[in-house]
């Protein structure tokens, strides 16, 4: 098992943002976290990586409590894409992606052939090969999002934790991102990602976890878990997930 979260609770200040949550993630599997803003998705993911302390329960990252691992050993097990990834300095796309090799001991300007191959593969997978020498402040929002995803892929960690990787992507790019995640899972990777796109989650995730106010409202295969009742309970609006042309559509009404 790649990731096991048992009865985890997280407090931010006086507020309980994750409340008694249990989830699992296996190698080769994609799990999507769904839920309204403030449901606790980001806090849960950060706790999974040991970036936030737990108030209760425990997390096991490939059998080890992530809080007991050094930053480097943690990074070799799990790659993380934050919700609003930053590139403070306008370095080149390739340099940014090369930072994914940090835990492997590489500096962006001194890559071993193995590091270089990982960077090239990540750039290729995200369709950025032609933009590798462009500066981060000279590319579009969607290209920036893909560059940060490529940075996480280049880390080549067995577990990928992505906070809203499809935010800011157009529908075609979101599908492209979905293909990348599927390919990662097909080659044995474990992927946990959050999204507000219910249909996208249903389309690519093996299982979904629907949260609200820090608690799990429903979990399981998308069609079983995302019932109108569960969607209404989570989002406060009546919603329905339907199959359309081999994919899914999610419709919410007042």
């Amino acid at each position: 098992m790649s990731l096991i979260v048992r009865n985890a609770s997280v407090d931010l200040g006086a507020r309980r943002v994750v409340d008694d949550v249990s989830i699992t993630l296996e190698a080769g599997e994609i799990v999507a976290l769904l839920g309204p803003n403030g449901a606790g998705k980001t806090s849960l993911m950060r706790a999974c990586l040991g970036l936030l302390p737990l108030t209760g329960g425990d997390v096991s990252l490939q059998g080890v409590d992530p809080r007991r691992l050094s930053a480097r050993l943690r990074a070799l097990r799990a790659a993380y894409l934050p919700q609003r990834p930053q590139a403070v300095w306008p370095v080149s796309v390739a340099s940014l992606v090369a930072l994914g090799r940090f835990a492997h001991g590489a500096a962006p300007d001194r890559l071993s052939p193995r590091d270089q191959a990982a960077v090239d593969a990540a750039l290729e997978a995200c369709g950025l090969s032609d933009l590798r020498d462009r500066r981060m402040d000279h590319i579009s929002g969607g290209e920036k999002a893909r560059a940060h995803l490529a940075r996480a892929l280049a880390q080549q960690a067995p577990i990928l934790v992505l906070d809203e990787p499809s935010a800011g992507l157009d529908p075609a790019q979101a599908l492209g991102m979905a293909h990348i995640l599927r390919a990662r899972a097909a080659s044995g990777g474990a992927v946990l990602f959050s999204t507000h796109d219910v249909a996208l989650a249903a389309g690519i995730a093996d299982r979904v976890v629907l949260m609200r106010s820090g608690r799990v409202m429903a979990a399981g295969a998308a069609e079983q878990a995302l019932t109108p009742d569960a969607l209404a309970a989570a989002y406060g609006r009546s919603g329905r997930l339907t199959r359309v042309d081999g994919g899914y559509a999610a419709v919410f009404t007042a």
């Binding site: 930053a71 943690r74 993380y80 990834p85 994914g100 940075r151």
Partner: peptide, 22 residues
């Protein structure tokens, strides 16, 4: 500290997530 400074270009949390000892 040079490599750590490169990592910090991603922000503090992402730097820690790629393995930097911030």
């Amino acid at each position: 500290a040079a490599r750590g400074l490169q990592a910090l270009g991603l922000g503090e949390e992402a730097a820690a997530a790629i393995g930097a000892n911030v």
